[in-house]
Nucleic acid binder design. Structure first.
Lengths: 245, 245
DNA sequence: CGTCATATTGACTTTAGTCAATAGAAGTGG
DNA sequence: CCACTTCTATTGACTAAAGTCAATATGACG
């Protein structure tokens, strides 16, 4: 698919559980209206709007966010390349949250009309897209477990495990190293922690040699140890994704 | 649909955003394999299993739960009559959480084969089911906002608003009164709070006359006041559901 | 070199948790 | 209907986790 290499990341993700047909893939490739670039902090989809396109991340990090009246922000999901971050708007009339760029990123747009056509004519692809949303919901549920029952230390360790597997699945981790362009504020907003506390927990993780950071680069010397500290169980990301090392 | 009055609750919910076709409704009615009864505490679907049927709640309350290694429990969702509580298993191979009965309840089972057939032949119904899962995800995200950024007092107030609207939508609330068969432990497990603290916050809500309880009956004298205390915005449940009173 | 965002540190406060005892309510068997 | 068990709700005293505020450092960038 010359000119659209990013389609590969998407199809790879959609095929994680079951293969797509050739018809699925070619139709999907034809769905992309445009690719738009955003800077960190820019709003990709605004709360309260009713978009006529859905989008998926091609490059960079995005997040689903909700601003509260008192100015605090909650991040409900991080989205990385290959993630559909807004199939939601295809199904529900009004956005109850925003999607924003957490790093410079590029986002591909797919019109709802095209998705409608998929639902009408390509059951296999429909199921794959539906499943992709189900996978997101599974991540949501794990975050709820983290927020409700894990200590802040475990929460952060858990997220770092999750991001390793997710980034690795789209080829954005090299061994146990990946780039995490999130600020401590972002991490805090994801778990309802203060920046100060996130900072302290990261330090604790560094002291325990569970993580090593160099700028935005994150290296995990011993995945097993970090997973244990986080009580991390990869089932929710799709079984069998946690490799040996 | 004699003999299957509960189908009505399900179709009513699925039609909240867009109407179903006659073909959709009749096929759906023919999907129900059986209806099974469970007592409070019983597991409806076990974590780690790979069910070949999905189910929806006909009567009573169920919850998605996850037990952690240290014995604590996290509730990720409450499910009431009309809710599909396990479309998840149609899409993903292994259950990463359990579904359990929080009150005596009856659950209807639908085989995955039937759902597969829906995806292949009834795009309109497929979209409705997909949308239903999207609505669940929206609730998940709101809970994350609650857990992350709302005080425990607000969290509980928020949930009580949510349950009013959800129960009302399936005809299980009379005015501003409904039956909530949850223990304070259940509420705590949903938000990661201790039972003691839930108890205190409920008392505070009672003192402020925001709620009045009689056993499991809950009466909300002034919905507007409770909604305000909770910073409740009903958009995520589908716009326009919050009525005047 | 200066500016702005991000990260770090320390002192103190608040929220919610823990532990332990008591009170109520619902259900069971005789 | 009563005695008994059990689950659920309530209370008080104390603790711990995480937040707040404010100052300082570090780093990226024009």
């Amino acid at each position: 698919m010359p000119g659209k290499p990013f389609i590969v990341q998407l199809t790879r993700k959609l095929e994680r559980h079951a293969p797509l047909l050739e018809a699925d893939k070619s139709f999907l490739a034809g769905c992309i209206d445009q690719v738009v670039a955003y800077d960190r902090g820019e709003t990709i989809i605004a709360e309260g709007s009713s978009p006529s396109v859905s989008c998926f991340v091609v490059e960079g990090f995005a997040a689903r966010t909700k601003e509260l009246a008192d100015g605090t922000r909650q991040i409900m999901a991080f989205h990385i390349p290959g993630d559909f971050c807004d199939l939601h708007s295809f199904l529900l009339a009004v956005m109850d949250h925003s999607v924003e760029a957490l790093s410079p990123c590029r986002v591909a747009k797919v019109s709802h009309a095209k998705i409608e056509e998929i639902v009408k004519t390509l059951p296999n692809l429909t199921k794959a897209l539906w499943r992709d949303m189900g996978a997101d919901a599974a991540i949501h549920r794990q975050w709820m477990v983290s927020m409700g029952r894990r200590s802040s230390y475990e929460q952060i360790a858990h997220l770092l495990c999750e991001m390793l597997l997710r980034l690795r699945a789209v080829g954005l981790a090299t061994g146990n190293t990946y780039e995490l362009p999130l600020t401590q504020q972002d991490l805090g907003d994801a778990f309802g922690l203060s920046t100060v506390h996130v900072n302290r927990m990261l330090q604790a993780l560094r002291r325990g040699n569970l993580i090593v950071t160099k700028g935005k680069q994150l290296y995990i010397p011993d995945v097993r140890a970090l997973a244990e500290a986080a009580a991390f169980d990869a089932t929710y990301l799709g079984a069998g994704l946690l490799p040996s090392a």
